[in-house]
Amino acid sequence: MTPYRLNRLFNPLSGRALDVAVDHGFFGEASFIDGIESMSHVIDVLVGAAPDAIQLTLGQSRKLQARPGKDKPSLVMRTDVANVYGNPLDTHIFSHHVPNAIEEAVRLDAVAVCVNLMQLPGHPEIREANIRSIMALRKEATRYGMPLMIEPLVMQDNSHAGGYSVDGDIDKIVALVRQAVELGADLIKADPADDLSVYSRVIEVADGIPVLVRGGGRVDDRTLLERTARVLDAGASGIVYGRNIVQHPNPAGITAALMRILHEGASIDSALATLEEVAR
């Protein structure tokens, strides 16, 4: 993997990145598209807010990349689709990656592609499908110099926690992150842990592979900013947040606040003040 594309993802001064994930519609769950029904509008808002990257699917990436100018956020392209988030689960569950995903990402001028590595209780076949996808994508990603972001996702049993609930057990997260590294990740998009005081273990096991931390469920602004600061202090190279930005009443404001913490090392109070200063 060459660093050329990643030079357009990470801020050259801070070495960090904010990737806003808006790939939720790919998974076919009605609740996932609350607040993002009009993707053209969502992308308008995000381009104006200027995060480092926006994470989109094959079908939505063109809405970003067709815009003129060289200062828009970089594209991270989601490559796989699964039906593992329903409650109850479908009787047949699956995970597949997009055919020719890496070539599509090259044509769309993406800076990286993202693929899941899911640990779903009682369904080892999903992890196997993810591993097969990762191995196929890794081969083509190497050929085209496309950075591969692997998303280790430790999930709770859907019948107990409902769809899209993660397991914050640090031991499980560390083990799955290590597997992602072994499979050839260029970037890791990792779960947050229930206990952030030990999150440095995730950074340690990634051992030089940049770790970007997922946002998880919606939380209040101060909690989100404090959690962001803590994972950065632990050694994370950035964040990949979705619902905490796109479902926020002021997406541009919360983006500006997060960017100040990421790239300027701003205090929580200063970042909150920035949020209030940015027009809704």
Rank of each mutant, 00 (worst) to 15 (best):
175 A>L: 11
156 Q>W: 00
50 A>Y: 06
84 V>R: 01
140 E>N: 09
119 Q>M: 05
5 R>Q: 10
191 D>C: 06
83 N>L: 03
130 N>S: 05
265 G>V: 13
194 D>W: 02
176 L>M: 10
15 G>R: 10
37 E>R: 13
182 E>L: 14
56 L>I: 04
5 R>Y: 10
174 V>P: 03
64 L>T: 10
219 V>Q: 14
250 N>F: 06
258 L>F: 02
226 E>I: 01
278 V>M: 10
73 P>H: 08
132 R>W: 03
237 S>I: 05
212 L>Y: 08
69 G>W: 11
184 G>D: 05
15 G>E: 11
14 S>F: 08
111 V>K: 05
123 H>K: 08
124 P>G: 02
118 M>W: 01
34 D>I: 12
272 L>V: 13
150 I>K: 02
255 T>C: 05
231 V>Q: 03
261 I>H: 04
215 G>Q: 07
137 L>N: 07
14 S>P: 07
139 K>L: 12
242 G>K: 01
234 A>R: 09
23 D>Q: 07
70 K>V: 14
199 Y>H: 09
35 G>N: 03
271 A>N: 14
21 A>V: 04
263 H>Q: 12
257 A>W: 04
87 N>K: 15
75 L>N: 11
260 R>M: 09
190 A>R: 04
203 I>G: 02
258 L>T: 11
134 I>E: 07
220 D>G: 14
15 G>T: 11
75 L>K: 09
124 P>N: 03
225 L>F: 15
90 D>M: 08
19 D>L: 12
215 G>E: 06
166 V>M: 12
51 P>R: 01
92 H>T: 13
205 V>G: 06
176 L>F: 02
274 T>P: 08
207 D>W: 01
195 D>S: 05
56 L>E: 04
95 S>A: 14
108 L>A: 15
56 L>A: 04
85 Y>K: 14
136 A>K: 12
157 D>E: 14
177 V>I: 10
151 E>G: 00
150 I>F: 04
38 S>T: 13
213 V>R: 09
197 S>W: 01
183 L>C: 06
22 V>I: 12
151 E>I: 00
280 R>G: 12
268 I>M: 03
223 T>W: 08
207 D>G: 03
24 H>T: 05
6 L>S: 05
12 P>N: 08
204 E>K: 13
69 G>R: 13
216 G>P: 00
86 G>F: 07
211 V>F: 11
266 A>H: 01
31 S>N: 12
51 P>G: 01
172 K>E: 05
37 E>I: 09
2 T>Y: 13
85 Y>E: 09
148 L>T: 07
131 I>F: 04
49 A>F: 04
193 A>R: 02
241 Y>Q: 01
214 R>W: 08
33 I>Q: 12
278 V>E: 08
267 S>P: 07
226 E>C: 07
40 S>C: 04
200 S>T: 12
184 G>M: 06
153 L>V: 04
219 V>F: 08
254 I>Q: 00
250 N>P: 07
59 G>F: 09
47 V>W: 09
240 V>F: 03
86 G>N: 11
224 L>W: 06
